[in-house]
């Protein structure tokens, strides 16, 4: 009888099940109508099957977003799991679409599905990449802006994983502040 190594036929389960969403800016429709669930996955193999099948972020049209969220969390501030939360925000300049965008987004995805934030990974809700003419953005969303330990741990690990130089900083903003801001910038609750 032949013994088959389970490694060769059992997919590698992820800690969480994830949903990938796509947003396409069509001004004739409501914001929610422009948001589509692409697919869900809960194994390493299925993550790659999806990632390898879809367009790179840098090929998307301006106004489009990808969002990866834990299953059951919708990629919007209003979701019960997001509304007391906030985001670590990376704003990219125009040159970075060519140089950094795709590798930053892939690194972000690997941080999420691999649970890179240790015991604080439970605080992660998801991540979003926004493709915009004036400059693309990538953000990691967490559940509770008042959870200083979790927010700062996630920020430090994330900054290191992206290879952001020590002398540069990234900021964390609450969704409540982003939703009610008057100007174009939101004040940072934390900086790493």
């Amino acid at each position: 009888q032949e013994i088959v190594n389970p490694e060769s036929y059992i997919k590698h389960p992820l800690q969480n099940s994830w949903s990938l969403w796509f947003f396409k800016n069509d001004k004739s429709k409501t914001w929610q109508a422009n948001l589509r669930l692409i697919s869900k996955f809960d194994t390493v193999e299925d993550f790659w099957a999806l990632y390898n099948h879809i367009q790179l972020s840098s090929n998307l049209m301006s106004g489009c977003d990808y969002s990866l969220f834990k299953d059951g969390i919708e990629p919007m501030w209003e979701d019960e799991r997001n509304k007391r939360g906030g985001r670590w925000l990376m704003t990219l300049n125009k040159q970075q679409r060519r140089l950094d965008l795709d590798r930053f987004w892939l690194e972000t995805l690997l941080c999420l599905v691999g649970e890179a934030f240790d015991d604080h990974s439970d605080q992660v809700c998801g991540a979003v990449v926004n493709i915009r003419t004036k400059g693309d953005k990538i953000a990691v969303w967490t559940a509770d802006y008042e959870n200083r330990d979790a927010v700062t741990h996630i920020g430090r690990v994330y900054k290191e994983r992206l290879g952001i130089p020590m002398k540069m900083t990234i900021g964390y903003q609450s969704h409540a502040d982003t939703a009610t801001k008057s100007g174009s910038t939101t004040k940072n609750k934390f900086v790493v």
Binding site: E45, Y51, N52, G114, E115, A116, S121
Partner: peptide
């Protein structure tokens, strides 16, 4: 425990043939 996968482990599966 938590199923943590580091980046090199995950990247190793990107171009693996699909499970049957």
């Amino acid at each position: 425990g938590k199923r943590q996968y580091n980046r090199d482990f995950l990247l190793g599966f990107q171009f693996m043939p699909a499970c049957v």
